[in-house]
Design a protein around this nucleic acid. Structure first.
Length: 886
RNA sequence: GCCCAAGUGGCGGAAUGGUAGACGCAGCGGAUUCAAAAUCCGCCGGCUUAACGGCCGUGCCGGUUCGAAUCCGGCCUUGGGUACCA
């Protein structure tokens, strides 16, 4: 081979790795273990360029850790349950199972040519009965340990499709598929008791030193710890002897500004009144309308209903407040009842204005009086406040005011300080077919009974008694299945019925990392394997999973520890987390006659630089219409003039998320066919820092490909060279090599792949220009191949082989930088005069400070600046810089 | 609204208190070629200068420091997260 051809070499090396079982992970005591995991994909049918970036990063780490003597576990699987499979079945009449497994086959075929160092023998899909059966077994353990329970909950119910909808599936208050008005319905659902772990999940974030601060903050906000006061207003003439309304507030310092009490339509007091009074019943029915989505909530008008009931203020017997039922008060947060302080809360202010309630400011600012423009005075806006009614003391900050108010109220016997969390229990029931069946049985005599473990897995039925399941009928096929539901009670043996709800797919992905340590075990985990391989040393995935998936996994690890499936040390399963950015691509857009955007494929667009050097584009079809051949070199001036025709200018939107409808999707399979896997891998790692988005550009891919060809050419030339040694040049090259080892390694260690690649470019340039002898060049080229091997493993093997390297580069030990070779004998130090660079001197690297000072003061530029005087100050930072202050 | 992050050439970005713009893309000039592709060499922030050089320059205003893209205070813009949570 004389020219680099990815197609000729990549398959060959993949076979060599497989044969040598380089990536097969086997438990062994003689090496430190390293577990690197990328978030596993959903089997949508095709791999996405984003997958390529994600798995390439993981692969760089995996291969690097192998080279540094680690026993590496790097597995791959599929998050295979979920709605898209059912939707596909509805659309095309197939079966979710067939669709899913066929997609998995396709995606594995697409991933293999990328040369990832994965242990494919551990692969599984969450829809394998061997996997979800173990999940069912754990669910039964969770029931025993009280980690899961059933309760009624309000859900979005689509009355046409007869199913529960996730919030994301409700659009404008209507079901996304049926278009029917969504109802709030109370259903009995299963819940994981994640809220029992609120405090622990929050506190343990502090120990996750190698997680992005951003993710920890998002989780902390989601868990939402708040400190407040819970107390009761006494109710005057309440119905049926009801004498109090319990409320919770995080702003007890505004208690003296209360002007009403509000209760949820689902509050027991509201329900009592509803039964007896038609006007209350009508209001409550109205208030319960509308979905539970953020959107629905945003639009909903704040409605209140004066019940006519009155309560007494806890600090003033004669002060009576009205009790309203209000649609914005949630029954499942706090006590389902609030007091409103319109002067210091915007929502209460709106409400009070609407219903003509008093607005009572409670803080006296030290100077200037109250801002006139807003009755709402936010907590942080007042530096010093004086709280009316609270012992007349000045309080410095908002937080202090809250603490002081709680203390004060407690001391007067009004309520007590309470800590609450925003985090709710995790509802896992889904009224869908393509999910893990919840392994319980409903028995008329015994109630809800967990299935016996020996009966697991409870498998999904493939058909309906020989007939294919019809997914076009609304509702859950398991519900209407003729025989599947029928079973016997595991407790009493009488006829009973299976639960037809399946589990949220987030359950499947909450423990797969543990299953990878022993994917074929007869129990959820194998304790010895789990103890050896856990925790995941490096987890890599998208920021979109910052909250739910990662929080659920942290909960599951704790629950699994309680049930004995994971060791104590794995309560936090991911030692380090890295969240990578997306691969984006430009969108080419014009405006249609109706003013709406029209998107174009990149190949339909002619890109060029306008006279200002900025990227611009016109449609090729337009160029052709004007009598120019778009494929020939063309007259830019003509195109520039075309561009003035506004309607035909193509707007380039860079860095847009890839989307089929916008014609900007880059298909990895095509890229591999065109350039090879190494080019795709090199490109997605270069240019942008891994945590940021990287824009896919044709020119960038082309450049990556050219560079790899150049590296091959250089190595081939060196392999064939017999140039004599050249002591001086040899040393220069080897010094550069050791510097490169140091810098590239540092980049890989700290997820700085883009800077590692920049250093590799630099070292390649040095090598190409070097006048060193063949032996030194060969050593440098072999090192270059090694440093590139985690990123472009196929090319690296090929170069290694032609340079005479022993064995596979994949199992060769990582080069070590020689400290002594990295230190230069002399350094060039810039001389600053008053902080501005004016000159530089070259000095021996260990020249004493005094001597440097002497040399500096003799320097022409310094003498000129001093004009015969003495410097006010002379700063010498050894080896770095000199600053003369005159 | 609240919380967080980012802002550096035509573009992606580098530099985390010490020579701003590494490395790459795009662009410009040259070599090679009948020509092209490929490859190789050089230039490439702005203003100014015949040149050497000088001045300005990391979103804006101010501060700390011998020295600030980097630290502090205030603002602007963009991106992300999140919310009837009492």
């Amino acid at each position: 081979m004389t020219r680099y051809s990815a197609a000729d070499i990549e398959g060959k090396w993949q076979e060599a790795w497989e044969k040598a079982e380089i990536f097969k992970a086997v438990r062994s005591a003689d090496k430190p273990k390293y577990y690197v995991l990328e978030m596993f994909p959903y089997p949508s049918g095709r791999i996405h360029i984003g997958h390529v970036r994600n798995y390439t990063m993981g692969d760089v780490i995996a291969r690097y850790k192998i080279s540094t003597g680690h026993n590496v576990l790097h597995p791959m699987g599929f998050d295979a349950f979920g709605m898209p499979a059912e939707n596909a079945a509805m659309a095309s009449g197939g079966h979710p199972k067939d669709w899913t497994y066929s997609n998995i086959d396709t995606m594995v075929e697409q991933m293999k040519p990328l040369g990832f160092g994965l242990d494919w023998s551990r692969m599984f899909a969450t829809c394998d009965p061997e996997y979800y059966g173990q999940q069912q077994s754990m669910f039964i353990d969770f029931i025993e340990k009280g980690l899961v329970y059933r309760k009624n909950a309000v859900v979005n119910w689509d009355p046409v499709d007869m199913t529960v909808l996730a919030n994301e599936q409700v659009i404008d208050g209507k079901g996304w598929r049926s278009g029917a008005e969504v109802e709030r319905r109370e259903l009995t659902q299963w819940f994981f008791k994640i809220s029992d772990f609120s405090e622990e999940l929050l506190d343990a974030l502090d120990g996750l030193d190698d997680w992005p601060a951003k993710v920890k903050l998002m989780q902390a906000n989601w868990i939402g710890k708040s400190r407040g006061l819970q107390f009761a207003f006494s109710l005057i003439d309440g119905p049926h002897g009801a004498d109090r309304v319990e409320v919770y507030t995080t702003r007890p310092d505004t208690l003296m500004g209360a002007s009403f009490v509000g209760i949820s339509p689902d509050h027991p007091l509201a329900k009592t009144l509803e039964r007896e009074r038609d006007d209350v019943a009508a209001f409550c029915a109205e208030a319960r309308k509308g979905g539970t989505t953020a959107e629905a909530i945003e639009k909903a008008e704040k409605l209140g209903f004066d019940t006519g009931l009155r309560v007494r203020h806890p600090f003033d017997e004669s002060w009576e407040l009205p009790v309203y039922i209000a649609n914005f008060i949630l029954m499942d947060y706090g006590t389902g009842a609030i007091f409103g302080c319109p002067a210091h809360d915007e929502r209460d202010f709106d409400f009070a204005t609407k219903y003509d309630l008093p607005i009572v400011p409670t803080f006296e600012p030290v100077e200037g009086g109250y801002p006139e423009n807003a009755a709402f005075v936010p907590l942080k806006s007042e530096k010093v406040r004086y709280v009316k009614g609270f012992a007349g003391e000045a309080i410095q900050t908002g937080e202090d005011a809250v603490i002081a108010a709680i203390d004060f109220c407690e001391s007067k016997g009004v309520g007590q300080g309470v800590t609450k969390f925003r985090l709710r229990d995790w509802g896992l029931s889904r009224q869908r077919y393509w999910g893990c069946p919840i392994p319980v049985v409903h028995c008329d005599a015994c109630g809800v009974v967990p299935e016996k473990k020996e009966n697991l897995p409870i498998q999904l039925p493939y058909d309906e008694g020989g007939q294919p399941i019809d997914f076009s009928i609304p509702g859950n096929p398991l519900d209407r299945h003729p025989t599947w539901r029928d079973c016997t009670c595991p407790k009493c043996g009488q006829a009973a019925q299976r639960e037809t709800d399946t589990m949220d797919t987030f359950v499947d992905s909450s423990w797969y990392y543990a299953r990878f340590t022993a994917p074929r075990a007869e129990t959820p985990t194998d304790p010895a394997e789990a103890d050896y391989w856990m925790n995941v040393d490096q987890y890599i995935g998208g920021i979109e999973h910052a909250i739910l998936h990662l929080l659920y996994s942290r909960f599951f690890a704790r629950a699994m520890n309680i049930c004995g499936h994971l060791p104590e040390k794995s309560k936090e399963p991911f030692n380090a987390l890295f969240t990578q950015g997306m691969v984006t691509h430009a969108i080419y857009q014009t405006k249609g006659a109706d003013g709406r955007p029209v998107y174009h494929y990149p190949e339909d667009v002619l890109e060029f630089n306008d006279p200002d050097g900025r990227k611009a584009a016109v449609l090729k079809s337009w160029v052709s219409e004007q009598g120019m051949n778009a494929n020939d070199p063309f007259d830019l001036a003509q195109v520039h003039s075309l561009r003035k025709l506004e309607s035909e200018v193509v707007e380039i939107i860079p860095s847009a998320k890839m989307s089929k409808s916008k014609n900007n999707v880059v298909d990895p399979v095509q890229i591999i066919e065109q350039y090879g896997a190494d080019t795709a891998r090199w490109f997605v790692l270069s240019d942008s820092p891994p945590e940021r988005d990287v824009e896919w550009t044709a020119s960038g891919a082309e450049a990556a490909s050219k560079h790899l060809a150049r590296v091959y050419r250089i190595c081939a030339e060196i392999a064939a060279s017999d140039a004599a040694d050249n002591a001086k040049e040899d040393e220069v090259l080897l010094r550069a090599m050791h510097k490169a080892i140091h810098e590239v390694t540092g980049g890989v260690d700290s997820f700085g792949f883009n800077t590692s690649i920049a250093k590799l470019y630099g070292f390649t340039n040095t090598l190409a220009k070097s006048k060193a002898g063949a032996a030194a060049k060969k050593e440098a080229a072999k090192t270059l191949a090694q440093l590139m091997s985690p990123m472009t493993p196929h090319l690296a093997e090929e170069c290694w082989q032609i340079l005479g390297g022993q064995g596979l580069i994949a199992s060769a030990p990582w080069p070590v930088a020689d400290e002594a070779m990295m230190v230069d004998e002399s350094v060039t130090m810039p001389i600053q005069i008053n902080g501005k660079r004016r000159a530089e001197i070259s000095v021996a690297k260990d020249m004493p400070k005094e001597e440097v000072e002497k040399l500096v003061l003799e320097h022409e530029a310094v003498l000129k600046a001093l004009e015969g005087g003495q410097p006010k100050k002379l700063i010498v930072v050894p080896g770095r810089i000199v600053n003369v202050v005159v």
